[in-house]
């Protein structure tokens, strides 16, 4: 089933973002002195094509050379996720989305519309597994006809959601509800995988039962609970109750959001 690979979509989008928002300033350890760069350029001609490409990539990341001067004090340097999202927040792409009059609202609307397609139909399938609707329709029939649409909805959700994230990356990354949502998304994906590689393989033996096997009911109930919690926490990302700039917060909140309050904020 092609749906198995769809779980990799978020990772793919993340890589895409990394490429789009490649570091504008060089991290300290990558900054080179101008004479070293000159030497490298000189060396390139005598190297094989693949090594040349590798060097070009390194050079591009290291540019501009002025970074050498300010590298020491650049807080966006370094390879941590926090710095990655900090750089993303500084990119013209992110600022443009964030400050646009309509783009953000339109993407948000697409996200909500796709929620009906994905969440609505996924819930219908879960309800069938629980035997609460369409009891006379074979489970495999509901799966075959509805799950492709949930895949379509999920793709639109991930793309629009990633765009929304890229508009406000740093704050979202440190948002407690966003973090909870990502963890629960992983769990929901795991649940889908376990269901499809487990009890659903033997669907032929229980296809027409109005009361499905216990494993299928557990999968349906888990899915239902997880997706409801994901929608709830997604909606709550908009609220700033636990944001880093609203100190003092309980230590546990600052731990969960990786906030480091300054001395005066404590």
């Amino acid at each position: 089933m092609q749906g198995r690979w769809i779980g990799l979509l978020p990772a793919f989008v993340l890589v895409l973002f990394y490429l789009v928002t490649a570091p504008a300033k060089a991290p300290a350890h990558m900054a080179q002195k101008s004479h070293e760069v000159g030497r490298q350029i000189h060396l390139i001609s005598s190297e094989s094509a693949s090594v040349q490409w590798a060097r070009l990539a390194t050079l591009r990341n290291a540019a501009p050379l002025t970074a050498t001067v300010e590298a020491g004090g650049d807080e966006a340097a370094g390879g941590s996720l926090l710095n990655f999202f900090r750089r993303m927040a500084d990119s013209s792409w992110s600022v443009g989305l964030h400050e646009s009059r309509y783009a953000y609202d339109l993407i948000e609307s697409v996200h909500v519309w796709a929620l009906c397609l994905f969440f609505g139909l996924a819930v219908m399938f879960d309800l069938r597994l629980l035997g609460w609707t369409m009891r006379s329709v074979p489970v495999s029939e509901v799966a075959r006809r509805l799950l492709p649409w949930t895949v379509v909805g999920f793709v639109v959700m991930v793309i629009s959601g990633a765009l929304l994230f890229s508009a406000i990356p740093l704050r979202s990354y440190q948002n407690i509800f966003f973090r909870a949502k990502m963890i629960m998304l992983t769990l929901a994906g795991l649940n889908v995988w376990i269901f499809h590689s487990g009890i659903y393989r033997r669907v032929a033996t229980w296809d027409v039962n109005s009361v499905t096997p216990k494993a299928a009911r557990v999968a349906g109930a888990l899915s239902l609970v997880l997706w409801v919690a994901i929608v709830l926490s997604g909606r709550m990302i908009a609220y700033n109750w636990f944001d880093c700039d609203r100190q003092p917060q309980p230590a546990i909140i600052n731990f969960l959001t990786s906030c480091v309050p300054t001395e005066s904020e404590r």
Binding site: L115, L117, G120, A122, V123, V231, L232
Partner: peptide
């Protein structure tokens, strides 16, 4: 209340779309 409203939206979306 707004979050519950959103859940209802998803549910009604599913029932309409089916």
């Amino acid at each position: 209340i707004e979050a519950i409203h959103l859940l209802g939206l998803g549910l009604i979306g599913g029932a309409v779309l089916v």
